[in-house]
């Protein structure tokens, strides 16, 4: 019995010591991995939530938009809003056709809101189309309004009219949706008639007056509106 007791006690002590050592070692190893960051480093990187980035966001397109955003008051803390035709022409540093071509991929995403001659007043169809486009934001961060005026009239008059048309769209959105920070979402460009006039082929885009005759003069009495799915 004596020998059995000794063997039992020795075995018990060995097992207890072994278990305790294994447990202690396991915890210490985990503590070392924790402190040295070895385990943390092995973790895969996770993407950070960001704005949408559509295939049409080419470097040239983003460069123009970024310049517009910086200069027209959408980024930073400036109180200034919108860009005048001269600004856009200088900022874009590209020809009229190239400027318009940048917006071609937005044909389906955007819409052309049409106005009466010498008027900045939105009709019901225009308001409905603005609402339709506005609520379809998805992952876009900026909503661009590119207002135009036809070549009829003086440049000063057209510049002013174009400005009013851009504001009409902004006010309509503001009244209807009452969203805060709207000025940080909506970028306004008013082009007058000096830069980037639209050709007749733009009549085939998603226009607000589908039932009316569309010509080059009419399509430039407009405001092109669209969310832009680019990380800017």
């Amino acid at each position: 019995m004596k020998h059995a007791a000794i063997v039992g006690i020795a075995t018990g002590c060995l097992m207890l010591a072994g278990s305790a050592f294994a447990v202690h070692s396991g915890v210490e190893a985990a503590a070392i991995r924790l402190k040295t960051g070895v385990a943390e480093a092995a973790k895969p990187a996770i993407a950070i939530a960001n704005d949408a980035e559509a295939p049409y966001c080419t470097p040239a397109f983003k460069q123009v938009l970024q310049r517009v955003l910086n200069a027209c008051g959408l980024t930073g803390g400036e109180s200034r809003r919108g860009c005048q035709p001269a600004d856009v022409k200088n900022l874009a540093s590209i020809s009229d056709d190239d400027f318009n071509a940048l917006f071609t991929p937005l044909r389906e995403r955007g819409a052309v809101i049409m106005f009466d001659d010498a008027s900045e007043k939105l009709d019901d169809a225009g308001k409905a189309l603005i609402e339709d486009r506005w609520v379809d934001r998805r992952g876009a961060r900026y909503f661009f309004v590119v207002a135009r005026a036809s070549k009829t009239g003086t440049p000063e008059y057209n510049r002013s009219l174009s400005h009013k048309r851009a504001n009409s769209v902004l006010f309509d959105i503001s009244d209807k949706f009452k969203e805060p920070d709207l000025d940080k979402k909506v970028g306004l460009l008013w082009l007058g008639n000096e830069f980037a006039q639209l050709g007749k082929d733009y009549c085939a885009w998603n226009v607000s007056r589908k039932d009316r005759q569309c010509a080059a003069e009419a399509i430039n009495r407009s405001a092109f509106v669209s969310w832009v799915d680019c990380q800017l």
Binding site: M1, H3, G8, G12, L16, S19
Partner: peptide, 17 residues
């Protein structure tokens, strides 16, 4: 661990436990 050691003791001691 304890039960293993104790069982071993009982097993070895037999009727002497």
């Amino acid at each position: 661990s304890f039960f293993a050691a104790f069982s071993l003791y009982v097993l070895l001691a037999g009727r002497n436990a």
